[in-house]
Nucleic acid binder design. Structure first.
Length: 292
DNA sequence: GAGGTCAACGCGTCTG
DNA sequence: CAGACGCGTTGACCTC
């Protein structure tokens, strides 16, 4: 792809309303691919001598089209059409008397979008051309620049899902192939995978949350039981305190459980308070699950 | 009209 | 630095 020397070529960046027949066709194809933007070409347009740069639907919002005076190379106005980055590039490039960077950068962006198939972009320069006409797409059918909601077909969704099962991320080639197969732009495939990963993560987060919630509830219940047990032990200790006072410490701690088969020894056998004991008090720490 | 879904956008971060 | 990605958000569309 060759570019003319813009210092001598003169530059026309224009917003026009006329659409030539070949662009009408391209526009129709464009819409069949789910895009809602119109290609706008200059009224100075000549079929064989033009440069067109169109942006994808992904760069529709908040776009500013730089209108440059070809002689002074100054920005003389703006209109919807180019996003800030591109218009900034245009301005700076115009000031430095070179648009090649702008053009290649715009072309690169667009190629990324259309998968190198020039589906909705053209960048053509005739060496005999005295003017360059940069064309952008900005307006929807109804004249607004709002985005339309694209609904993927069942077949498209199914294929995307199938692909997602095999790999949740795509390399550039896979993206291109899938986009070609689905008749979508690579960017759309990319966005679908990003959103799909987000949905997967959200679902997993919900599962994790439910699990943690259940775990929390279980622990809360366990804690409640243990608190109750502590209260009972305290009450028991309080009730038994006069007897405890007459027993050796070792005997007292050893004799609390009647279910231990007389392990309590003399103290336990002789004291009447064993009737008040509960079997689970034998070892609440190693036998917690059987408590209550 | 409220609320949900989902494609698309913008921005920040990471990485080769 | 370009490209991929995550994340929060927006806006169109749908359902109730």
């Amino acid at each position: 792809m060759g570019f003319v020397d813009l210092r001598n070529a003169g530059l026309v960046l224009d917003l026009g309303l006329s659409v030539n027949a070949s662009y009408e066709q391209k526009l129709e194809d464009h819409h069949q691919l789910g895009c809602n933007n119109k290609l706008i070409i200059s009224e100075h347009h000549q079929p064989q001598t033009y440069l067109t740069l169109s942006l994808s639907a992904d760069h529709r919002r908040d776009q500013t089209f730089a209108v440059l005076d070809s002689d002074s190379k100054q920005k003389i106005g703006t209109a919807a059409g180019f996003n800030d980055q591109i218009s900034g590039d245009v301005i700076s490039a115009a000031n430095s008397s070179s648009l090649s960077n702008v053009i290649s950068s715009c072309v690169k962006r667009e190629r990324e979008v259309v998968g190198g198939e020039d589906l909705d972009m053209e960048a053509k320069v005739s060496s005999s051309s005295s003017k360059l006409i940069i064309v952008d797409e900005v307006i929807d059918d109804d004249g607004s620049n709002g985005r339309k909601k694209l609904r993927l077909t069942k077949a498209q969704s199914a294929l995307l899902e199938e692909s997602f099962k095999h790999h949740s991320t795509l390399n550039p080639k896979q993206k291109q192939d899938l986009a070609r197969e689905l008749k979508l732009r690579p960017r759309q495939v990319e966005v679908w995978f990003q959103n799909r990963r987000a949905r997967t993560k959200l679902k997993q987060t919900e599962v994790d949350y439910a699990l943690l919630k259940k775990c929390c509830e279980t622990l809360t219940e366990e804690n409640r039981k243990l608190q109750k047990e502590v209260q009972e032990l305290k009450a028991l200790k309080l009730a038994q305190s006069p007897l405890y006072m007459h027993l050796p410490a070792t005997a007292a701690t050893f004799a609390v459980c009647p279910s231990c088969g007389g392990a309590g020894g003399v103290g336990a056998a002789n004291s009447g308070f064993t009737l008040a004991m509960k079997p689970h008090l034998c070892n609440p720490f190693t036998n917690r699950s059987s408590a209550f």
